[in-house]
């Protein structure tokens, strides 16, 4: 009987909501395909492959969550023929495939909902991590959609959030102190949207009567807070990533990105006009 093959999932923190759900999805698929999963936490980005605690003997491939490894190292691993799949990340100039939510589609849905359905015209955008693909793509999509609806968004309406809810809340609180006019907030992820909503309510504003709030992605926290989101199933992201990786291990040459569709989850933080 042959030894069970192993795939590694490399992440900066397996306990964060996003990473936890990706790992759960990947583990489910791996179990179905009879692969063993080894989750590796990398606190500091290693510079060399030898610095990674990988069991090269049994390692069949690796699933990398976001930008936990430097691009140069990913490039090296790929060139050495190790099957890799990236979750919500891309490495320019390489053919390493990945799996991502359809950021453009999701932001377009949120903007259409805010502008057309709710009649909002002065959005504030809370940015994600601008070194990460999701953060970059979602802001680009927001800018494109703003142009579609002929909305002129001043630069100080783009608030730093870095996918950190506490930072999003702080940026929102700071923005509220400037007394600038706005009627909605779109955050690059739903956890930041929820944190921003708390900051808005703490300052005495009503949601959705005074300000509508929406965020990208979905989870139990968003449902509990009544937050309108576009659902990008993160567990499914993990499942699809594992399928892509196992496909490569089984000999498929794959290049490009698998995109996951998004769906509007309309809740109580927005109100149709």
């Amino acid at each position: 009987m042959s030894a069970m093959r192993e795939i590694n999932i490399i992440t900066n923190n397996p306990y964060e909501v996003f990473q936890r759900d990706v790992i759960a999805g990947a583990q489910e698929t791996a179990a179905q395909r009879e692969f063993r999963v080894n989750v590796i936490q990398v606190s500091e980005p290693p510079r060399h492959a030898k610095d990674l605690p990988l069991n090269w003997e049994s390692l069949a491939g690796a699933l990398i969550i976001a930008n936990v490894l430097p691009n140069e190292l990913l490039h090296t691993l790929h060139e050495h023929g190790l099957p890799l799949s990236l979750i919500s990340h891309q490495v320019p100039g390489t053919a390493i495939p990945g799996v991502m939510p359809n950021n453009r589609q999701g932001i377009a849905m949120l903007m259409q909902h805010l502008v057309i359905a709710c009649g909002c015209a002065k959005p504030v955008f809370i940015q994600g991590h601008m070194q990460q693909n999701d953060g970059i793509q979602r802001e680009m999509a927001f800018r494109q959609e703003a142009m579609r609806y002929n909305l002129n968004i001043p630069p100080d309406y783009y608030l730093p959030g870095e996918f950190i809810p506490a930072l999003a809340a702080e940026s929102m609180a700071h923005f509220l102190q400037t007394n600038r006019e706005f009627d909605c907030v779109l955050a690059s992820d739903y956890l930041m949207a929820e944190a921003a909503m708390r900051a808005i309510q703490a300052a005495g504003w009503r949601v959705p009567e005074d300000v509508a709030v929406v965020g990208f992605g979905d989870g139990p926290e968003a449902a509990q807070a009544g937050l309108t989101t576009v659902a990008a199933d993160v567990v499914e992201l993990g499942r699809r990533g594992a399928r892509q990786l196992i496909g490569q291990i089984d000999g498929l040459r794959i290049r490009g990105l698998t995109l996951l569709s998004t769906e509007l989850a309309e809740r109580s933080t927005t109100r149709r006009k």
Binding site: A95, P97, R243, Q244, I246, G247, Q248, L252, R253, I254, R255, G256, T258
Partner: peptide, 8 residues
């Protein structure tokens, strides 16, 4: 490469 991505 793209067809393979979907075959997977």
């Amino acid at each position: 490469d793209v067809i393979n991505g979907l075959v997977a």
